[in-house]
Design a protein around this nucleic acid. Structure first.
Length: 469
RNA sequence: GGCGGCAUAGCCAAGCGGUAAGGCACGGGUCUGCAAAACCCUUAUCCCCGGUUCGAUUCCGGGUGUCGCCUCCA
C-alpha cells in the first residue's frame, strides 16, 4: 500500500502543504458561519458544503474532527432587520438559524460539533477584549473599543498586504474615534434603542471579528489546525482575527487557512444591487438538493463557480447517471447480504484513486471522476446476465462508500405509489406485450412514468426505478 | 494604485515538464416491438509572443482578456 499524504493549500503561504495535525488523529477546525439576518444564498452554501466535505474526508481517513462553526446573531444587519420588521433581534436570529439548519440539512451537511452563537459567548468576548485593553492592543474611546492595528507587527500577513498599502483604502466613518484608520472595532457602544450588553466600557455589542477569536479560543484552543471561510474573508475578517488572537496568545492562530472561491450567477457577481441573489431556500424547490451539492463539488473549491439553469440542468443529467447506476445495481443485488470479498482488490483500486484525488487539496472534481469510473465498469458488468452477485455488490458498495464521503446520497425519491401496485401494472403490461398489444403496453408504461416510475426492458427482464417527478 | 485568481473541445471541468481525465450536449452504431438505460465509435496540438529544455498546456518573461480582494459580504 502506498503511503499517501494529504496536501492542503494554505492561504498564509500560498502553497500546498502537507497536512500535519497538532494532535495525532485529530483535527480541530473552525469555519466562519452565517450572519443570521436572512435566508442563506448559494454563495453562503458553498463553504458549508465544501468544508463539510473536507470534514467528511478527514473522518474517512480516520481523523476525529472537532468542527466548530459560529452564528453571528447580533450585528448591524440584524439590527436593521429588527427595525424594519419591528421584531426583536433574537427572534430574527432564531428564525434564520432554524432556516439555515433546515437548508443545510437538505444539502446533506453533517451537524457541526458546536454552533456557538455570539450572544451566548458574551462573557468570553468581553473578557477577550478586556485582555487586549490590558496589554495595550486595544483602547476604549467614548464607549467603543478599537484594536490598535499598528501595534501588531504581523498585520497583513494573511492577505499579503503591507500596512501602508492597506491604509490607502481604510476610512474613518463619521462618529468613529479611531487613532488610526486601520484600527477596527472590538466593541461598539449601543445607540438608543439598540440591543445591548453590559461591559466595562459601557453598554454595547461586540464588533464582528472578535466573536470568532473568542469562540476559537473557547472551543478549540489557542492554536487550531484549520480555519476556513469564503475568500472574501481573507481581508479584513481573518486578518483581524489573527491580530486579535495572536496579539494575546503569541502563538499561531491556525496552521492552515482555507478559503473557497465565490459563486457567480450567469458570469456576474451575485449581489443585491444586481438583484441576482439566489436563496438556497428557493433553489431546492426547483432542483434536488443533492444535485446542488454535486454541482458545487464538480469544481475545485478554490476556483470561482458559475451558476445558471443550463449548468444546473447538465448537473441533473450527470448526477442522474450516478443515481441510475446505483439503482440498477441495487435492483440486481437486492437486499441480500452478498459476500463481495472477491471484489476487494478492485474496490481498493478505486479507493486508492479516490484518496489520491482528495489528498491533493480536496480535488473533488477528480474524486467525482472516480465515481464515474466505477459507474462505467459497473454498467458493463450489469449487462452480463450471469454477472457474479458478489461483483455487483462490490461495485454498489464502493460506489456508495465513496459518494458518501462526498456527502452525496444516491437514493431514490419517495413516490406515493406502492411497490405492489407497480408490480401489478408491470404484470399487466407484460401480458399485453406478449400478446403484441403494444399500444396498451405503452399506455401502462406512460401511466407509471407520470407517477415517477421508469420502466426499462432488459435482457434480464423488466426493471423499474423511481425517477424524479 | 496595491495584492491575487483564472484563460484547456459546443458547454462544464481535471491535468501542470514526456505529445490532453471525467461529465453534459451533438453525430454514427449495437440492443429494443418502440422506447429507456447501457455499451462501442467519433469530437482539442491547451489565449498570444518570446525564453529555458532533448521535450512545455505544464517552468520563466512580456502581452491580451477576464474575475476578485483592498469598504458590509461566503
Amino acid at each position: 500500500m502506498i503511503i499517501l499524504v494529504l496536501r492542503v493549500f494554505n492561504t498564509m503561504t500560498r502553497k500546498k502543504e502537507t497536512f500535519v495535525p497538532i494532535e495525532k488523529g485529530k483535527v480541530r477546525m473552525y469555519v466562519c458561519g452565517p450572519t443570521v439576518y436572512n435566508y442563506i444564498h448559494i454563495g453562503n452554501a458553498r463553504p458549508v458544503v465544501v468544508f463539510d466535505t473536507v470534514r467528511r474526508y478527514f473522518e474517512y481517513r480516520g481523523y476525529e474532527v472537532n468542527y466548530v462553526s459560529n452564528f453571528t446573531d447580533v450585528d448591524d444587519r440584524l439590527i436593521n432587520a429588527s427595525k424594519e420588521r419591528h421584531i426583536p433581534v433574537p427572534q430574527i436570529a432564531d428564525q434564520f438559524i432554524k432556516a439555515f439548519l433546515s437548508d443545510i440539512r437538505a444539502l446533506n451537511v453533517k451537524k457541526a460539533t458546536v454552533n456557538p452563537r455570539a450572544t451566548e459567548t458574551m462573557p468570553e468576548i468581553i473578557a477577550f477584549i478586556g485582555r487586549l485593553v490590558e496589554t495595550g492592543y486595544a483602547y476604549p474611546v467614548h464607549g467603543d473599543v478599537y484594536f490598535r492595528t499598528r501595534k501588531f507587527q504581523d498585520y497583513g500577513k494573511l492577505s499579503h498586504q503591507s500596512v501602508d498599502d492597506l491604509k490607502s483604502g481604510a476610512r474613518i466613518e463619521i462618529g468613529e474615534n479611531k487613532e488610526d484608520p486601520l484600527d477596527f472595532a472590538l466593541w461598539k457602544a449601543a445607540k438608543p434603542g439598540e440591543i445591548k450588553w453590559k461591559s466595562p466600557w459601557g453598554e454595547g455589542r461586540p464588533g464582528w471579528h472578535i466573536e470568532c477569536s473568542a469562540m476559537v479560543e473557547k472551543y478549540l484552543g489557542d492554536t487550531i489546525d484549520i480555519h476556513a471561510g469564503g475568500t472574501d474573508l481573507v481581508f479584513p475578517h481573518h486578518e483581524n482575527e489573527i491580530a486579535q488572537s495572536e496579539a494575546l496568545h503569541h502563538k499561531t492562530m491556525a496552521h492552515y487557512w482555507l478559503h473557497n472561491g465565490h459563486i457567480q450567477i450567469n458570469n456576474e457577481k451575485m449581489s443585491k444591487s444586481i438583484g441576482n441573489v439566489i436563496l438556497v431556500h428557493d433553489l431546492i424547490q426547483k432542483y434536488d438538493p443533492q444535485v446542488i451539492r454535486f454541482f458545487i463539488l464538480t469544481v475545485q473549491y478554490r476556483h470561482p463557480i458559475n451558476f445558471s439553469d443550463e449548468l444546473l440542468n447538465d448537473a441533473v443529467q450527470a448526477f442522474g447517471r450516478l443515481k441510475t447506476a446505483a439503482f440498477n445495481l441495487r435492483e440486481r443485488v437486492g437486499d441480500r447480504d452478498v459476500d463481495d470479498s472477491a471484489f476487494q482488490e478492485k474496490g481498493d483500486h478505486y479507493r486508492q484513486d479516490f484518496i489520491s484525488a482528495m489528498d491533493d487539496d480536496f480535488n473533488t472534481a477528480n474524486a467525482i471522476a472516480v465515481l464515474f469510473d466505477i459507474v462505467k465498469d459497473a454498467n458493463i458488468a450489469l449487462q452480463q446476465t450471469n454477472a457474479e452477485p458478489g461483483q455487483l455488490a462490490g461495485y454498489l458498495n464502493v460506489l456508495l462508500e465513496l459518494s458518501g464521503v462526498l456527502g452525496l446520497k444516491l437514493e431514490s425519491h419517495e413516490t406515493s405509489i406502492l411497490d405492489s401496485e407497480i408490480e401489478d401494472l408491470i404484470k399487466k403490461r407484460e401480458q399485453a406485450r406478449n400478446q403484441k398489444q403494444f399500444a396498451l403496453a405503452d399506455q401502462i408504461r406512460g401511466e407509471l412514468k407520470s407517477k415517477g416510475i421508469v420502466l426499462e426492458d432488459t435482457v434480464q427482464g423488466v426493471r423499474w426505478r423511481r425517477d424524479q417527478e
